[in-house]
């Protein structure tokens, strides 16, 4: 069995172990679905009141939302451990993972799985509906499909890279939960809307520091708005690759600073 096979096996095992507590599993799935649905409804209400925001139609903003959320839940599906990394440092769970003959990051990723089927389905539905609408009205060509698939991939990588860098900060500061509210939750919420709505400093932050702007806004300026050139896709891919490399670098240094816990 290669590492991919073993990873799949470990993910399956996590699901099986999670199913042992059936009521908890059902409740947490329902709650998560409720949260995303209500979040989305909030956005819908906002848009139905304003109709369009700074020239962005409801469907275009729906597209931004769909891409962002699909990337988010893909990341949450396989990167749940990175997203909730604090307990690994606080409880010293990382010790056990360091004893496995696997690359550490892979051991961490496969140690926890979150079931995101419902949320992913919802995000993809929104995304599909918006893409269909844009196609039917002739606002986009069929190129939108492969382009969207591409930016879902790069978006997931950016999400993962930011999550990994945040988790790696924990090797120095141990507690990362509040930090990840800032780097993940707040930025995700902001990026549901076009970046052009925000003040300069926030836009710079979302493009240069925590590059969530490259998950949906930047490529959408080309894919659905056609205002910017095809270079945006290349830039998006480059940002995703750079973010991943930096995050892996920080992680690698962080691991040598791991302090474990006393017994």
């Amino acid at each position: 069995m290669n590492w991919l096979g073993i990873s799949v096996m470990l993910y399956k095992i996590n699901v099986r172990a999670g199913m042992q507590y059936r009521l908890n599993f059902i409740l947490s799935t329902l709650l998560a679905a409720l949260v995303t649905v209500s979040e989305f409804l909030g956005l819908v209400v906002l848009l139905s009141v304003f109709g369009a925001i700074q020239g962005w139609s409801v469907w275009e903003i729906g597209y931004l939302y769909g891409v962002l959320m699909t990337a988010k839940f893909l990341y949450r599906a396989f990167g749940s451990a990175i997203n909730n990394f604090e307990p690994y440092l606080v409880n010293g769970t990382l010790d056990q993972l360091l004893l496995r003959p696997m690359p550490l990051l892979l051991a961490v990723l496969t140690s926890r799985t979150r079931m995101v089927g419902g949320e992913l389905l919802q995000s993809l539905t929104v995304l599909g509906a918006c893409v269909a609408r844009l196609l039917v009205h002739g606002d986009a060509s069929w190129w939108i499909v492969p382009e969207t698939l591409l930016i879902i991939c790069t978006g997931t990588v950016i999400m993962f890279a930011v999550g990994l860098a945040t988790a790696a900060c924990g090797f120095w500061i141990t507690r990362t939960e509040d930090l990840s509210v800032l780097t993940d939750n707040a930025t995700t919420t902001a990026c549901q809307l076009p970046l052009s709505l925000f003040p300069e400093w926030l836009r710079t932050l979302l493009l240069a520091v925590i590059p969530f702007g490259f998950i949906n806004y930047v490529p959408a300026m080309f894919i659905v708005r056609g205002e910017w050139g095809v270079w945006t896709l290349a830039a998006t891919a480059a940002v995703a690759a750079a973010a991943l490399l930096i995050a892996l670098g920080v992680w690698k240094i962080g691991v040598t600073k791991y302090q474990s816990t006393g017994t």
Binding site: L98, S260, T263
Partner: peptide, 11 residues
């Protein structure tokens, strides 16, 4: 424990 963890590659 610190020593043991260094022996195993944890620290």
């Amino acid at each position: 424990s610190t020593t043991i963890k260094m022996l195993c590659g944890i620290l």
